[in-house]
């Protein structure tokens, strides 16, 4: 039976949205995408090439009012056997509500397509293990972790239909303002991340980390002690109690690799570790290692990246 994908799309369609539509299409080719947000119809139409059949866009709802978005989706849920969210800030607020509202099991943090027995692999123990979850209801809700499936262009077109349904709710949520940080790439969706720890000795030395990140087009991150001392902002802290990330490339500079830090970055496809201490535990979790002083290695690595980019 058909699959419903919920997307919140502002401006352009991001990679995460293409991942969701690809995942949905692999479950069932009959994919309808329910959208909130300002993204123009022309960008929404590009989802057809990834397998979407129909787009239903509701521009009167605010994504922050999860009560309303949930009520809207619930009105249509009966036509679908799988309902798909991203396990991002919006999916985390709407999917659990919908699970209760339509009494359908929620499998959150999925990292791959359903197995032949129907169980779905999810991230548990903050990246230290995987679980296989079965849904016990006929309709299942899945929230997918970013970077879990590669978007597949298959060609095809879709229709876009605008609706204005606005279910009434008890209680109110109003958006007062949105603060945008200065030009940084948001960590949870970054494909490349450069991260540093206490090995850098002080906040004044972060310039070289930022230079490397800029050369790569990467986001910057840090370890917990660095955020706690106040060298870097809290939103950059990756690890078990900070942000968990799953980029394609994670470069860790001057981070020893405590188990709590590894938990937040285990999902990275490739890990590069730069550390003066050859015995640092992080080397055991790394794909590539450089034993050396960050103050010498990082500027040289930045030069090497720039040289490579200039040739490419």
């Amino acid at each position: 039976m058909a699959t419903l994908v919920y997307l919140h799309a502002t401006e352009n369609i991001g990679k995460g949205s293409l991942e969701l539509v690809t995942y949905a299409r692999k479950i069932d080719s009959d994919v309808t995408v329910f959208v909130t947000g300002e993204a123009p119809n022309a960008s929404l139409e590009t989802l057809g090439a990834y397998g979407a059949k129909e787009i239903i866009v509701n521009r009167v709802l605010s994504v922050s009012n999860n009560q309303q978005v949930c009520a809207w989706l619930a009105q249509h849920a009966a036509n679908y056997s799988t309902i798909l969210f991203s396990h991002d800030f919006n999916g985390r607020s709407i999917a659990p509500r919908l699970s209760v509202r339509i009494k359908a099991g929620l499998i959150s943090g999925a990292v791959s397509l359903p197995e032949t027995n129907g169980a779905i692999k999810v991230n548990v123990f903050s990246g230290k293990a995987f679980g296989f979850v079965k849904c016990l209801t006929e309709t299942r809700i899945i929230s997918l972790l970013p970077n879990s499936i590669a978007p597949e262009l298959i060609g095809g077109t879709c229709t876009v239909r605008e609706v204005n349904e606005q279910p009434s709710t008890q209680g109110t949520i109003a958006v007062l303002e949105v603060k945008k940080p200065e030009g940084a790439i948001p960590l949870p969706e970054a494909e490349l991340v450069v991260s540093a720890g206490r090995g850098l000795k002080g906040p004044e030395n972060w310039g070289m980390v930022e230079d490397l990140a800029e050369a790569l087009g990467a986001a910057t991150a840090c370890s917990r002690p660095v955020a706690d001392i106040g060298w870097r902002p809290h939103h950059e802290h990756v690890g078990q109690t900070g942000v968990a990330i799953r980029p394609n490339l994670y470069i860790a500079i001057g981070i020893s690799g405590a188990i709590q830090h590894l938990a937040g970055v285990n999902g990275s496809k490739v890990i590069v570790v730069v550390n003066t201490d050859a015995e640092a535990p992080f080397f055991k979790a790394a794909d590539y290692g450089v034993i050396g002083d960050a103050f010498e290695v990082v500027p040289k690595l930045t030069e090497a990246v720039k040289k490579f980019k200039a040739q490419a």
Binding site: S99, K103, A104, G105, L106, I107, N117, A119, K121, V124, A129, F130, G131, F132, V133, K134, C135, L136, T137
Partner: peptide, 8 residues
Amino acid sequence: LTSFSSYA
């Protein structure tokens, strides 16, 4: 509504 069948 859901159940963990195994871990890895």
